[in-house]
């Protein structure tokens, strides 16, 4: 029973905070561009506006198009339950696992990419094809970030990974390498510069937005919310893995976690602001950097550890 209670609280936290984190990133970016920018609450207003609008559906589409945003949101939330957000560090026996979270994120991508092809439009195909290309390279990079801790712990559950991460020095070179890799992966996976640009609808550059181009109304609201939840998830995963220290009672720990998320979101916004869009075919080199850095981190860990 307690597990289900925790799950509900965690879901609420994810759903509630995801738009705020997005608004925060927008605000930081605006500051970098010398603008005042919209309020940090703008994503909530946008979602509310969309929720009240009418749904449109392209002619050739099937039920897959209509259900994909719902599915994507549900899958992202289900993945959110698999990550230790609350009650940190993970209590003994907490069985959430890194691999199932990565698997669920891949499933979400699968569903949205299919729905994009369901529209029978060139934009859908374009976005879908690019998204799965990025996805195919992000997946090993995601694994690579966790690799040093996986090899240390000999397992893939969050409890093991976090314990392993906490067991090495805070300023270890391993952590630094993994952190740089994590920033690269997060930028790619959340559809941000230099991989994708969330603020544009130019067909030459858009990836994720092209997949969602035919969505409107509540459907679009859910698809965007799913993306925001996924963004928060990634931020939480990275802070869990790389900055695993929490102090004080349960409430203080949750507070520290949330502070760390915003710090990480700030970092993402800065990284996005200072980078220029990369040519699509340069992406493998960019994501490859992440893989190589985290492999180097893993190798360092192995050399140091034995």
């Amino acid at each position: 029973m307690r597990i289900w209670g925790e799950a509900v609280v965690q879901l609420g936290l994810l759903l509630g905070l995801a738009p705020l984190v997005n608004g925060f990133i927008q605000r930081v970016k605006a500051a970098f561009q010398g603008r005042h920018g919209p309020s940090v609450l703008q994503p909530y207003f946008t979602l509310r506006k969309l929720w009240r609008r009418q749904d449109l559906r392209p002619q050739a589409s099937t039920w897959l198009f209509a259900t994909a945003p719902r599915l994507a949101l549900s899958i992202a939330l289900a993945a959110g339950i698999g990550i230790p957000l609350l009650w940190y560090p993970a209590p003994v026996g907490w069985g959430g696992d890194f691999i199932i979270v990565v698997g669920l994120l891949a499933l979400e991508r699968f569903v949205l990419a299919l729905a994009a092809l369901d529209t029978a439009t060139p934009f859908g195909g374009l976005g879908s094809s690019r998204e799965v290309t990025v996805g195919a390279m992000v997946e090993p990079a995601l694994f690579a970030i966790a690799l040093p801790w996986m090899l240390m712990a000999g397992g893939t559950s969050w409890a093991m990974l976090i314990t392993a991460s906490a067991s090495i020095a805070p300023l270890d070179l391993v952590r630094f390498f993994a952190l740089v890799a994590a920033v690269i992966v997060c930028l790619a996976e959340t559809g941000r510069l230099p991989v994708d640009n969330p603020d544009t609808h130019l067909e030459l550059t858009m990836i994720h937005e092209a997949m969602l181009l035919e969505y409107s109304g509540p459907q679009l609201a859910m698809a965007s919310l799913a993306q925001m939840v996924k963004q928060l998830l990634l931020v939480a995963m990275v802070t869990d893995l790389l900055l695993p220290w929490r102090w004080g009672g349960p409430l203080a720990q949750v507070g520290i976690s949330i502070l760390l998320w915003f710090a990480a979101a700030f970092g993402l916004a800065v990284a996005e602001s200072v980078s220029a869009k990369l040519r699509f075919f340069r992406l493998p080199a960019y994501l490859g950097t992440a893989v190589i850095l985290s492999s180097a981190a893993a190798a360092l860990q192995l050399w140091g550890g034995r």
Binding site: A113, A136, P140
Partner: peptide, 17 residues
């Protein structure tokens, strides 16, 4: 692990196709 992850990502792409 890395090869398996790459394979998984590519297989997802292929079966979306």
């Amino acid at each position: 692990v890395l090869a398996l992850a790459l394979t998984g990502g590519l297989a997802t792409a292929c079966f979306v196709k």
